[in-house]
Design a binder for these strands. Structure first.
Ligand SMILES: [Mn+2]
Ligand SMILES: [Mn+2]
Ligand SMILES: [Zn+2]
Ligand SMILES: [Zn+2]
Lengths: 143, 143
DNA sequence: CATCCAATTGAAAACGGATTTCAATTTAAT
DNA sequence: ATTAAATTGAAATCCGTTTTCAATTGGATG
């Protein structure tokens, strides 16, 4: 059923921006939330096409950008040249471990690292808006 | 004069791979090392053109990739959609603070963060090959 | 120096993901 | 039902990267 809270947030966003509710947006949101994580536009598009053959790539693309603007999704780049999207854990943050062999993506969160990042930034007179931490390596089953 | 050590490393690399020394490669290496850091292919190309109008973009592109393969340069992506290259500090590593307002890039190194990254990876059964840590925010003079 | 062959060059074309265009359609307010 | 504005999807376009290919060059050889 996807998170009701997330859907509410998107509905509120659309209302606020004067956007319209459409069959496509409903279907895309449903599928995006049910699949979960780290999907490229292409991947989501292909999945949607299985049940909705008449949905367009451009619409999927635009809708994912809307999700990101709304804050219910985040765009990621893991170095394979295509953007990926994942549902936001509302106010939780996490970083990623990526297996360079099988592509597996593991999420983690480490407050000590986050804290040190703040410290480093402060020392250089920066105020951090966001950061990106990705650890690339080989996962257990690939060894 | 650029680092003699770096040039030696590149010469050794070329010898090993059966590559030829050319006027273009010399010029590109010289300019790359003298400018220093975080240059896009386009930027280096334009700089080179000022004194060497007949150098080609493709050659600059290929030569930068050679530098990276050789280990005297590293490719970076700071999220503006184009690759950037910087001379490697031979065996030193560093991460980046990027000002989202003026584009300034500050380098830093924090062994505590590096250590925690290792720890996190180990806990998830990963062995790290490389990582990417970028802190985006606002620099002092932009505030 | 002359010859030869593999490596290199650079202009142009191709590539690939992201984004935009635009005519037709749909939404939702009146 | 009417209407204006938003949306859709196929196709075109964008833009950085990479490749193609004919011409040139490096450098080894005799
Ligand atoms: Mn994630
Ligand atoms: Mn750097
Ligand atoms: Zn793996
Ligand atoms: Zn700044």
């Amino acid at each position: 059923m996807g998170s009701a809270k997330t859907k509410d947030k998107f509905r509120a966003f659309m209302l606020d921006k004067g956007l319209k509710s459409t069959r496509q947006r409903e279907v895309i949101l449903e599928e995006f939330l049910s699949v979960g994580s780290h999907l490229s536009t292409e991947e989501l598009y292909l999945r949607l096409r299985r049940k909705n053959p008449r949905i367009g790539y451009a619409t999927v693309h635009r809708t994912l950008k809307l999700f990101a603007e709304c804050g219910i999704a985040e765009q990621r780049h893991f170095g394979d040249g295509q953007a990926r999207y994942e549902a936001s854990d509302l106010d939780e943050h996490h970083d990623h471990l990526i297996c360079t062999s099988c592509g597996k993506i593991v999420e983690f969160e480490d407050p000590r690292i986050e804290q040190l990042q703040e410290k480093v930034a402060r020392q250089h007179g920066f105020s951090i808006e966001r950061h990106r931490l990705e650890l690339y390596g080989c996962c257990e089953s690939c060894r």
